[in-house]
Simulated scan of single mutants.
Amino acid sequence: MEVGDLHKVWEIHALKRKPDEPAARALLDRVAKQVQPIMRRRKWRVKVLSEFS
């Protein structure tokens, strides 16, 4: 594993009982990718990024 891979979102969970789960997961994926440069700079890690109602 590369050092750059440590500072990121490790898992993404969308609510499974909602009808638009694929769209929610896609949105969470985009958010995780957008904040990755900030997380690398600050040396932050997020184990689970999840949707809530």
Score class of each variant (00 low, 15 high):
residue 26 A to K: 05
residue 41 R to T: 07
residue 7 H to E: 15
residue 42 R to H: 08
residue 16 K to C: 11
residue 28 L to G: 03
residue 38 I to E: 12
residue 36 Q to C: 06
residue 20 D to I: 01
residue 19 P to L: 09
residue 35 V to W: 04
residue 53 S to I: 03
residue 51 E to M: 03
residue 27 L to G: 00
residue 9 V to A: 10
residue 42 R to F: 00
residue 46 V to G: 07
residue 13 H to N: 13
residue 9 V to N: 09
residue 25 R to I: 00
residue 32 A to S: 14
residue 7 H to F: 14
residue 33 K to G: 14
residue 30 R to C: 01
residue 40 R to D: 01
residue 49 L to V: 01
residue 45 R to K: 13
residue 44 W to L: 15
residue 51 E to H: 05
residue 28 L to Q: 09
residue 12 I to C: 12
residue 16 K to D: 15
residue 3 V to L: 15
residue 5 D to R: 03
residue 33 K to D: 14
residue 32 A to I: 01
residue 38 I to N: 07
residue 14 A to N: 01
residue 4 G to M: 08
residue 18 K to Y: 04
residue 45 R to H: 06
residue 8 K to V: 09
residue 50 S to E: 12
residue 39 M to D: 07
residue 6 L to H: 07
residue 3 V to E: 14
residue 30 R to L: 00
residue 22 P to T: 02
residue 46 V to I: 15
residue 31 V to W: 01
residue 41 R to A: 06
residue 34 Q to N: 06
residue 20 D to A: 05
residue 41 R to M: 05
residue 35 V to A: 03
residue 6 L to Q: 10
residue 37 P to N: 05
residue 29 D to G: 06
residue 8 K to E: 11
residue 29 D to E: 13
residue 43 K to M: 06
residue 24 A to V: 01
residue 1 M to T: 14
residue 3 V to A: 13
residue 20 D to K: 00
residue 14 A to T: 03
residue 42 R to T: 03
residue 17 R to W: 13
residue 37 P to I: 10
residue 25 R to H: 05
residue 52 F to L: 00
residue 29 D to Q: 10
residue 7 H to G: 14
residue 8 K to I: 09
residue 43 K to R: 14
residue 45 R to F: 00
residue 23 A to T: 03
residue 26 A to Y: 03
residue 50 S to L: 11
residue 8 K to F: 07
residue 32 A to F: 02
residue 31 V to K: 07
residue 24 A to S: 10
residue 17 R to I: 10
residue 36 Q to N: 09
residue 31 V to I: 12
residue 1 M to K: 15
residue 49 L to W: 06
residue 4 G to Y: 12
residue 10 W to A: 11
residue 6 L to Y: 14
residue 47 K to Q: 03
residue 36 Q to L: 13
residue 21 E to K: 04
residue 26 A to H: 02
residue 44 W to R: 14
residue 45 R to G: 13
residue 46 V to R: 05
residue 9 V to G: 11
residue 35 V to R: 08
residue 7 H to R: 14
residue 31 V to T: 07
residue 4 G to R: 04
residue 35 V to M: 11
residue 51 E to Q: 12
residue 3 V to G: 10
residue 17 R to F: 13
residue 39 M to G: 12
residue 4 G to D: 13
residue 13 H to S: 11
residue 14 A to D: 07
residue 35 V to S: 04
residue 22 P to M: 02
residue 17 R to G: 13
residue 19 P to T: 04
residue 31 V to G: 05
residue 12 I to Q: 11
residue 24 A to F: 00
residue 18 K to L: 10
residue 37 P to V: 13
residue 40 R to H: 04
residue 13 H to M: 07
residue 41 R to C: 03
residue 49 L to H: 11
residue 52 F to E: 08
residue 7 H to D: 14
residue 28 L to Y: 06
residue 15 L to T: 03
residue 28 L to A: 06
residue 51 E to N: 07
residue 50 S to N: 03
residue 34 Q to A: 11
residue 2 E to N: 15
residue 16 K to A: 13
residue 42 R to G: 07
residue 35 V to T: 05
residue 24 A to N: 11
residue 31 V to S: 07
